[in-house]
Design a protein around this nucleic acid. Structure first.
Length: 504
DNA sequence: CGTATTTGACCGGCGC
DNA sequence: GCGCCGGTCAAATACG
């Protein structure tokens, strides 16, 4: 919008001061006639109708039509924020008008009042925009998930169709004596596919790991050789924290704890309790190498609105999971090309985000334990981040998707907040302020996830990594277990209806 | 007393 | 077939 537009739409702000109404209106009209070449007022009445035309031709929305209605307080809330750029000019014109009739002190008071009102309006507008941003962010995430699911559904249909066509070919090629037997076999295979698909789409399917995958499925379906290995994407977050669990804005209920092999620290299992049917679960475990590092592994997609505090983490995990799933990378491909992505991306960067190619679950790891200085210092060698327990050795854990160094540098000021270095952590521990520490971490994490998700380089790096894997592998397989990503589950028992917010 | 957590039992996958 | 392991369930317990 041009400068003229700003001035013209800003004029209603002056209506805050009734005393200035007449002069302001005069200014507005003069501005209208003099400085709106793009607008084309309809040649009707030159006063009242002209005002209507002015707003309409400035492409203002309904809110601004309201502004036109009356110079009441409602108007004050609907002023375009971009117009503040001309506040000085407009104020000067107002002051000039007033200066001719009142003292300068009164002018200053009026000006102060106007500025205060404008400040309030800006705050209001800021909050409104913030709300809109949250809303748009929510919609974006939901849309992304929906698109991903639709793609998977379509691919699933293609797989099923191809399977049936293959069976028909086999049946037709056989002689009449064996036709019946082959046909029954085809039906069985089709039934299996259908049953599997049906189960994946039913609410009963487990949104978590689904260890109860049928053996028949994995052994008989030639199109899905790695189904059991591609159940679901996980997003793992590594961060330094003394707290037993990081604060991510969601409500969790602990439902189990196990001693995992190779780690003296127990692994805790949590499920989201913000909604009854929410399938999101997470595992929390301390790193075996450095027990100050807390590894939180998320899986699933929230089926309910999230508070702003939880949006950052949820957006990050769901986006990362969607990206992983849309890659449709077979585990075998990844295992055979453990470093292909590392080679395909920048060599001289340290890992901020890593994708685990190890079976059984595609896992993306966001490492928040290194400060940017360390990252840049160590950029010579691709630093391996200790994998989540159960993610095998470094040979199998390929640090493949890395944030470009330039991106890190660009966002260094932001990342300096999120990279919880030892120094910061130690000072916080010395302060014995655990709550403050966790709040700081939550803020840092929010900032981190916001930066990560907003950074196109990060997305591009992940996309390039996945594309590289897909193009590098000989087989492009689709695993319909992806559809379970957003499938809700009823496994959560009814006695879990209440929850305790665990934000420390 | 209601709710959350703990913890042993159970289940399924997987390797040998 | 057996044992190991990860994940989940659910009764027991703790807690406010």
């Amino acid at each position: 919008m041009g400068k003229d537009g700003w001035r013209l739409t800003f004029e209603p702000v002056k209506l805050l001061s009734p005393r200035l109404n007449s002069s302001v209106k005069a200014t507005m009209y003069s501005s209208d006639t003099a400085a709106s070449p793009s607008s084309s007022p309809k040649p009707e009445d030159k006063n009242s109708h002209r005002e209507v035309d002015f707003f309409s031709t400035c492409k203002l929305d309904d809110d601004h039509v309201v502004v036109k209605k009356e110079n009441s307080h409602d108007n004050e809330l609907d002023v375009n924020t971009g117009l503040h750029l001309l506040t000085t000019n407009s104020d000067q014109s107002s002051v000039d008008d007033g200066g001719s009739s009142t003292s300068q002190e009164k002018q200053a008071k009026d000006k102060l009042t106007i500025l205060k009102a404008e400040l309030e309006k800006m705050n209001t507008e800021n909050q409104r925009l913030r709300g809109m941003l949250t809303h748009v962010s929510n919609n974006y995430t939901a849309l992304q998930i929906h698109i991903s699911n639709e793609i998977h559904k379509q691919q699933n249909q293609i797989v099923e169709q191809n399977s049936r066509q293959l069976n028909e070919l086999v049946r037709n090629s056989n002689d009449s004596s064996s036709e019946e037997r082959t046909q029954s076999g085809s039906i069985k295979l089709g039934d299996k596919i259908g049953k599997r698909n049906g189960r994946e789409n039913t609410p009963d399917s487990d949104g978590w790991v689904s260890n109860k995958v049928s053996r028949l499925d994995t052994s008989k379906n030639i199109n899905q050789p790695n189904e059991s290995a591609m159940r679901k994407a996980r997003v793992s977050v590594r961060a330094r924290s003394e707290a037993p669990m990081i604060t991510d804005g969601c409500q969790w209920r602990k439902y189990g704890q196990k001693m995992a092999k190779g780690n003296p620290c127990p692994r805790a299992y949590y499920r989201c309790t913000m909604a009854v049917g929410c399938s999101v679960r997470k595992q929390v475990q301390r790193c075996v190498d450095d027990q100050t590092i807390l590894i939180t592994t998320y899986e699933g997609t929230h089926s309910h609105p999230l508070p702003p505090a939880a949006m950052a983490m949820a957006s990050t995990t769901s986006a990362a999971a969607s990206m992983l799933l849309s890659g449709s990378m077979s585990s075998a491909d990844a295992m055979m090309n453990p470093n292909i992505l590392a080679r395909s991306i920048l060599h001289n960067t340290s890992s901020i985000a890593t994708i685990s190619s190890s079976a059984p679950f595609p896992t993306i790891t966001l490492d928040l334990t290194h400060n940017p200085n360390q990252i840049q210092r160590n950029n010579k060698s691709t630093q391996f981040q200790a994998p989540h327990q159960g993610q095998l050795s470094s040979q199998n854990f390929a640090p493949i998707a890395t944030m470009p160094l330039q991106s890190i540098s660009t966002n260094q000021s932001k990342f300096s907040d999120l990279q919880l270095s030892h120094d910061i952590e130690s000072s916080q521990l010395l302060a014995h302020n655990k709550g403050q520490q966790q709040t700081s971490f939550a803020d840092s994490l929010s900032a981190a996830t916001a930066v990560i998700t907003a950074d196109p380089n990060f997305t591009a790096a992940l996309a390039a990594a996945i594309t590289s894997i897909m193009s590098g592998g000989n087989t492009t397989t689709y695993n319909d277990s992806h559809t379970s990503t957003t499938t809700n589950t009823n496994l959560i028992s009814n006695n879990h209806k209440t929850s305790n917010f665990q934000g420390n």
